[in-house]
Computed example of a mutant assay.
Amino acid sequence: MRLRLFLLILSLVLISAQSWSQGCVAIRHFSTCSPTYGQSNPSTRGDFQTGLNYRYFKSFRHFRGTEEEPDRVTNNTEVINHSHSFDYFLSYGITDRWQVAVTIPLVLNSRSSLYEHGRSERYSTFSRGMGDVTINTNYWLIDPFINSSFNLQAGFGVKLPTGSYNASDIFYNVGPNGSPETRPVDQSIQPGDGGFGLILQGQGYYVLNTRASIYAAGFYLFNPRNTNGIRTFRETLSPLLENEAIMSVTDQFSVQAGLSFVAGTHMSLQAGVRYEGIPVSDVIGKSEGFRRPGNVLSVEPGINYTVGNWNLMLSVPVAVRRERPQSLTDKEIEDETGNPRNGDAAFADYLINVGVSLRIPGKRITDI
């Protein structure tokens, strides 16, 4: 019973760590939004685990600071992003405590707006393709088969710039005499960011009794590259936006915690909170160029179903607080003009995250 409880809770903790991004213009998908330090962790040495996660959100509610601007929706001037992402992952248990994993993301994004198309007509731009691949390794500080009531895991990973960060589409009413023009799509729907990133991550759990436990997880993506050289064309909207003409390569973070409950032989439920976002400035390197810093606090219900070596998961983080803080370029413009400035960003109400995984047990020495 304790082993079954441990495996169910461990599976829930690992899978809950998979669905990182709540979904907003400020927070791009990272597979980021996933080195999948969670679901990709097998339980024993020699185990493989493979699976697919699907994530969807629609961002359309505009915030400036923590204040929503509902008139954007009323006046039909809101920016609408639809984001579909598919994360394929494969992991291997080097030992019972060391695991290594690789995640390959595929994205399909669309962005509908007025201001990017001459402000007179609404059009959509699209991006699709592979995102930024991540490779990571994780280590349980305590042997999980010696102590199944408490454990902590630390991990390190790299994000490779495999995704296109210059995906382009047709923008209307912006060329000479109002002609269409091919330009890079907005930063929020670029499949990649052009940066080589470093990832620090961790997670842990504590079993309260035979049915309930608490869990926590988090990560920080360090993106040392300053800007990626891709033009935003924001300076064509106003000469004041010259400092936002090139895309920034941003850090990203997420932390979460909650309670999991074993609801049956195969089912467990979760109730948690999640806080994630893009910081105003990076920890390593410069933070020039255009970025939309933002953060989201969400409540996250979820369900996890395990049958044999198969696992199904559904979680739906729902935003309860959204913030688009003043960026460095906002502050520069404010200092230059003497007028207050804080850019806006569009956020989603919720995120849908669905995952399926298969554990392929390895041959243990004791079995030979």
Rank of each mutant, 00 (worst) to 15 (best):
R45C: 05
G131H: 05
T182V: 15
V73G: 02
Q187T: 14
G338H: 10
K159I: 14
R45Q: 15
L198F: 15
A17F: 05
V174S: 04
L297Y: 11
S327K: 13
L208D: 09
S149L: 08
M313E: 01
N53D: 14
V299E: 04
L297K: 11
S298R: 05
Q270T: 15
S19I: 01
D169F: 12
G38M: 04
E121F: 08
L3N: 15
E336I: 01
Y215D: 08
R225V: 00
R292V: 05
Q22V: 11
R364M: 10
F233S: 10
N228D: 04
L221P: 00
F290L: 08
N226Y: 00
H62M: 14
E323Q: 14
S298P: 03
S83F: 00
M313R: 06
L328E: 08
I80Q: 13
R122W: 13
S120D: 08
I94P: 03
N41R: 15
T137F: 02
N147A: 04
T265Q: 14
D47T: 11
G131N: 06
H117G: 08
I135Y: 02
G38P: 03
F86Q: 00
E332K: 13
N304A: 06
N138D: 15
G202F: 11
N304T: 12
R55W: 12
T125P: 04
R119Q: 10
S188N: 11
A217H: 10
R61F: 10
P340R: 12
I284H: 10
Q187F: 09
I27Q: 00
N136R: 15
G202L: 13
I27Y: 02
E69H: 07
S179C: 07
E68P: 05
S287M: 13
S149R: 13
D193Y: 14
H62T: 14
S149A: 05
G46E: 04
L200Y: 15
P184Y: 14
I303F: 10
T44D: 07
I9S: 09
S112Q: 10
N41P: 02
V79H: 04
D330Q: 09
F253M: 04
V73D: 09
S164A: 09
S110N: 08
L328I: 14
G93E: 02
L12E: 09
F347T: 00
G131P: 07
F219T: 09
E334M: 10
V273P: 05
D87R: 00
N295A: 03
I27L: 03
R45Y: 03
I365W: 01
W20Q: 05
I368N: 03
R341Q: 13
A348D: 07
